[in-house]
C-alpha cells in the first residue's frame, strides 16, 4: 500500500511538468507567433506585397495569441462600461480588423530584420511582459508584449513599441473622440478607416 502510494505520487510528480510543458509559456507564445509571421513574410512571392493569402495566414497566427477583446476593453476604458454587449462585440471586430490591416501593411516592409527575445518579467499574478528587440543593421527597436493568462493560455493584451503603450495611446484618442462624437462617431471613424484601408489594399 505504501509502495503503491509512493509510485502513484512519483507518477503524478512526473506528469505535472509534462502538463506544464504542454501549455506554451508567454515567451513561447510570442516566439511562436513572431516566427510564424516572419516565415510568412520571408516566403511570400513578392517581397513588397502582402497578398490576401498572406494576410489570412498572419491573421491565423495572431488570433491564437492575441486577446483582442481585452485590448479593446482596455483601450476603451470607461467607455467600455457605457456600451452594450452588441456594441462591444462590434467594436472588438472593427478594432481587430483595423489592427490587423494597418500592422499587416507595416509588416509588408519587412526586409530581413531579426528578432531577439529578452527577459520575461512578471508584472502581477498571471500577468507578464515579454521583451523583444527588432534588430537591423543600424537600429534596435524594443517591443514589449504584455500577456495575461486566460483559460485558453497566455494571450497578448498590450504592446509597447519603443516605450509607447498602444493601449494607453488608443485610450486617450478614443476618449477624445467619444467626448466629441460619442461611441457612434468613434465607430464611424474606425469603420471609415477600415473601408479606406481595404480599398487601398485592393
Amino acid at each position: 500500500m505504501r509502495l503503491r502510494t509512493l509510485v502513484a505520487t512519483a507518477m503524478i510528480t512526473c506528469l505535472l511538468p509534462l502538463a506544464a510543458w504542454a501549455a506554451p509559456g508567454p515567451k513561447e507564445v510570442i516566439q511562436g507567433t513572431v516566427d510564424t509571421i516572419i516565415n510568412i513574410l520571408k516566403t511570400r512571392e513578392n517581397p513588397d506585397v502582402l497578398t490576401a493569402e498572406n494576410r489570412q495566414a498572419i491573421r491565423k497566427a495572431v488570433e491564437g495569441s492575441f486577446d483582442f477583446r481585452e485590448m479593446a476593453r482596455r483601450s476603451l476604458s470607461k467607455g467600455w462600461k457605457k456600451i452594450n454587449n452588441a456594441q462591444r462585440e462590434a467594436f472588438t471586430v472593427v478594432f481587430r480588423d483595423l489592427l490587423e490591416r494597418s500592422y499587416g501593411n507595416r509588416l509588408a516592409g519587412f526586409s530581413g530584420e531579426t528578432v531577439e527575445y529578452g527577459e520575461v518579467k512578471v508584472k502581477k499574478k498571471n500577468r507578464v511582459s515579454v521583451e523583444t528587440d527588432i534588430v537591423d543593421a543600424k537600429r534596435r527597436t524594443p517591443i514589449h508584449y504584455s500577456l495575461h493568462e486566460t483559460k485558453d493560455g497566455w494571450r497578448v493584451y498590450n504592446i509597447a513599441i519603443e516605450g509607447v503603450s498602444l493601449v494607453s495611446t488608443y485610450r486617450s484618442s478614443f476618449r477624445k473622440t467619444m467626448k466629441k462624437k460619442g461611441f457612434d462617431g468613434l465607430m464611424k471613424a474606425m469603420t471609415d478607416k477600415l473601408e479606406r484601408l481595404k480599398k487601398e489594399d485592393g
Binding site: V164, Y170, S173, M190, T191, K193
Partner: peptide, 12 residues
C-alpha cells in the same frame, strides 16, 4: 509612433 498608431485606427 503614438501619432501613427492613432492615425492607423482612424482616430488620429
Amino acid at each position: 509612433i503614438s501619432a501613427a498608431s492613432t492615425y492607423d485606427l482612424g482616430v488620429g
